[in-house]
Nucleic acid binder design. Sequence first.
DNA 1: GATGAATGAGCTTTCATTCAT
DNA 2: CATGAATGAAAGCTCATTCAT
Lengths: 189, 189, 189, 189
Amino acid sequence: MARPLSPEKRLALLLAATQAVAEQGVLASTASIARRAEVAEGTLFTYFESKDVLFQELYLHLKQSLADRVMPSYPHAADYRQRMRHVFDQYVVWGLNNADGRVALARLSASGVVRDATREQATEPFLAFSRMMQDAINDGVLLNAPIAFLTSIMERVAETTIEYADKHPQDAERTQQLAFPLLWRAISG
Amino acid sequence: MARPLSPEKRLALLLAATQAVAEQGVLASTASIARRAEVAEGTLFTYFESKDVLFQELYLHLKQSLADRVMPSYPHAADYRQRMRHVFDQYVVWGLNNADGRVALARLSASGVVRDATREQATEPFLAFSRMMQDAINDGVLLNAPIAFLTSIMERVAETTIEYADKHPQDAERTQQLAFPLLWRAISG
Amino acid sequence: MARPLSPEKRLALLLAATQAVAEQGVLASTASIARRAEVAEGTLFTYFESKDVLFQELYLHLKQSLADRVMPSYPHAADYRQRMRHVFDQYVVWGLNNADGRVALARLSASGVVRDATREQATEPFLAFSRMMQDAINDGVLLNAPIAFLTSIMERVAETTIEYADKHPQDAERTQQLAFPLLWRAISG
Amino acid sequence: MARPLSPEKRLALLLAATQAVAEQGVLASTASIARRAEVAEGTLFTYFESKDVLFQELYLHLKQSLADRVMPSYPHAADYRQRMRHVFDQYVVWGLNNADGRVALARLSASGVVRDATREQATEPFLAFSRMMQDAINDGVLLNAPIAFLTSIMERVAETTIEYADKHPQDAERTQQLAFPLLWRAISG
DNA sequence: GATGAATGAGCTTTCATTCAT
DNA sequence: CATGAATGAAAGCTCATTCAT
């Protein structure tokens, strides 16, 4: 994949795609994405080989955006509960601050266009977190359950929290304070 | 009345739509659905006014199918934990026995085509369960949290369980036995 | 063509077709015509072999309806001018009293669906009038021009009068009084 | 600008539409029009937003084509009769030289697809002629009748002349010589 | 490299007509 | 005979992608 001339245009296309997918799902047309990015229809295809490729890269981009919120401040030295809490809280913060990104990610994920290889690749930035999960299971701090299952539970609880807080802003605070203890009771050993 | 609308054909169309949506999401063409149902393209539209209407009715049909598994055997007289366990377990059983239905429901739900009124309507068959949740909160058996939030958590844990069991059959048994206690720890007061 | 069981249904269909064609032209669907006639979709086809046949018969029916207004009271013994005036005036009266019929006839006529044989057949009820035109030309009372041309002029002036009176009701009276003298000056020898 | 919209292609589409509408009326398919214009089906829609828009523009195009025949040579300084004769004669010439255009215009006009605003807009190129009509009425040269009525009469007589000359070529000359005096007797004061 | 006109396959939907009831 | 469900061939229109400019 050649280095495209303008990273700005690439980003503008990914941002436009995020909004378009958040609003219209994967039926959003490449033309509408290009228009939103203020770029010609054909230009989209010099940055992304096809619509499918655009969507794989959009998925990676959104997951990376989440990782960028969660991982740089990851407290490698804190205890398991605090590390988990950090990840959970930052996930929720990211979701509340990136409504389009979160919805786009959910739609993309449920649409069936994201390939397994892409999903795999998207886990990389979260490696430190995965390792922590495995250690916590080994140390008996977390439930002796498949790591993928526990991770999935964490993600789903976070998503539910974000969605609920988004839909019922007056309960947002209370729900956020409830959410992590709820998760921790669920998955701690 | 010449030839009455055939409930079998209607069902065949809903089943075909379930499979098609499970495989291809909402981009599944009406032509492919009709073909799968072994019915002419036009016939689909004598049973469902439009693709949109088909999808609303498919959503209701799938939710009803879930309710039919969960509610008839609902133990109205059992204690809260047992009633909750019943619903959760039956949900999981339904999901494992209806892979297409579950995936179709998830894709439909995330695609944005399901209208709020349809979602609302789909909750009706679960009324006894909703009432139980409210009572359990009032009695302090469940966490003092918004009922919609707790319900959502339950659904997400059930879905995660199904998905995980589906993808890793060798861990299925163990995961299922883990899942309800995990949920109950999470949401009980 | 077998005598259909119910002349009422046949008439109801022709009336419904008149309204439908007046409103939507020849694109009016057979289903909409049947619905308007309060008859099943298939019934239309027991009275008229096809949509095309329905339109041919509708054309004849409307022309006959015009003839029924014009010819029974035709003053065979009056002078040329009076006979012509009678036909012209009754034409206009029919048009003003049968807005749907007039518009349907015009749309049908301009649509290209009416076959020449049908047009030919529709002139029959007006034979006495045609003969009078020919006699008047021979006697030098009318312009020495092809009879079809003069007839066409008469029809177009009548139609223009009707349309104008319909669209500008406040000028209707004045226009009607203007119209026949205008026509007579045009075509008298 | 990549490849500019091609006026030739636009014209080819309008010409193709003219022929198609002349032959088949407004039921002519966009596919058949595109094929006739030797252009892809989708291309039609880059030049005309929809079939409806194509028809509005086709109406304007045909009226403009008529105006282009009639108006550039309009004898502004001649007397009323001569100016009227000019318009009438040129109208007939245009009709005889543009069989498809004339028929298409008539079918379009009678089909009900042409909107009032479009009709209104189409009168613009004939403004000088309209003003002359009004002046002639004021000066008592034309009948004291609504201008729209007189204009309509003129058009109808012209159309009848064209149609008759077209259908009976051997009478064409004679009919054309008859036609204007006939019109002038009809509408002069 | 950027542009957007051109392409044609594919989409949802309509509709004249048939025929089982 | 009346009914209206069933049919499948169009119809109008959209859209990912290509490529001349």
